[in-house]
Amino acid sequence: METLKIIIPTDFSVQAEFAYLMVQRLEEKTAIDIHFLHVLNVPDTVTLDSAGNIQTCGEIDVNYVTKQKDIAERKLANLKVLYGDHINTHLVLGKTTDAILKFTESNHFDLIVMGTKGASGLKEKLSGSETQIIARKSKTPLLSLMCDRSDLQIRNILLVHNFSQPAKENLVLMQKLIKAFDPKMHLLQITSGSVDAEKAKVEAQMIQFAELNGISNFQCHLINDKDVENGVVHFNQMINMDIVCIGTHGKGGLFHQSATEKLINHLFKPIISFHLNN
């Protein structure tokens, strides 16, 4: 059985617990190597030496950082008590999102799983949630969720995409989920034009996409809506999906509204985001 190497960034909140419960659901069907990562959020001038001692340039109290490190290490040790010795725990120093991205890439994880509180209003426009930023920058697929989904049955997975130029995408994780859970894939494209006029063409493109990406058990959907976010929400009201998958070009922030990031912040569904090849 193929093993999924999963990292769960944790701040020891209930959202991190939701992430672990979701991973447990995945673990029922496939072997998983679970790693918890806690980032001690400190400036770049604070480092660990080879012996694990805190080093600073003098602007931050070493004793304060050492105490925070000790507290975090005790909490990480407690995770092993709660969840078992099979989990791995890690502590790194740095800026939270940058440290998560660096650790994930350097250790070649298959999936990041994060619970999120979401974001709205000015916070969303200026910075967004940490989960949103990870989705924007990470080359590793991200599974995000806002609530406890330990009761989730993975039978229907929604793939939201623009199928106008069918190509082989980076769907390695999705292939592993298909192999483990044997769900029906629902291919969805949202259009602002006429569904009747575009349907035959789009379905032909979806079929070609499915062939290129090794998807056999699937259903095609084309709906009209004002944008991707509303289309996904309205589609789920009509046909309830278990997981939503959506690609991102890695753009976002104040001057670019990413549909993927908006869904992460607003949709109460587990969402897998992945970087598109083009």
Rank of each mutant, 00 (worst) to 15 (best):
Y64F: 15
L187D: 00
L263N: 01
H221L: 02
K199V: 03
P270S: 05
G253F: 08
N107L: 05
C245D: 00
H90A: 04
K125A: 11
P183K: 06
T89G: 05
E59Y: 14
H249M: 10
F218N: 06
L142N: 06
N277G: 13
H266C: 10
G58W: 07
H38E: 08
G84E: 04
G52R: 06
T260N: 05
Y83A: 05
T248V: 08
Q55F: 09
L158P: 07
F235N: 07
R74M: 15
V62D: 12
C220F: 02
F18E: 08
I272M: 01
E169P: 01
K199C: 03
K262S: 13
M206V: 02
E105G: 09
G118Q: 01
M185L: 15
D61N: 14
F268G: 02
K125N: 09
H35S: 13
T10A: 07
L152M: 14
V39E: 06
L143W: 01
E105T: 12
S258L: 09
P183F: 05
N107M: 00
L177S: 08
L187G: 00
N224S: 15
T248Q: 02
G214I: 06
D98V: 08
V244K: 01
K226L: 14
D227V: 12
S216H: 14
K125S: 09
I246L: 11
L21W: 12
L76D: 04
M206Y: 03
K251F: 11
E124L: 00
V172E: 15
S144Q: 03
K168D: 02
L122I: 11
I71R: 05
T96H: 12
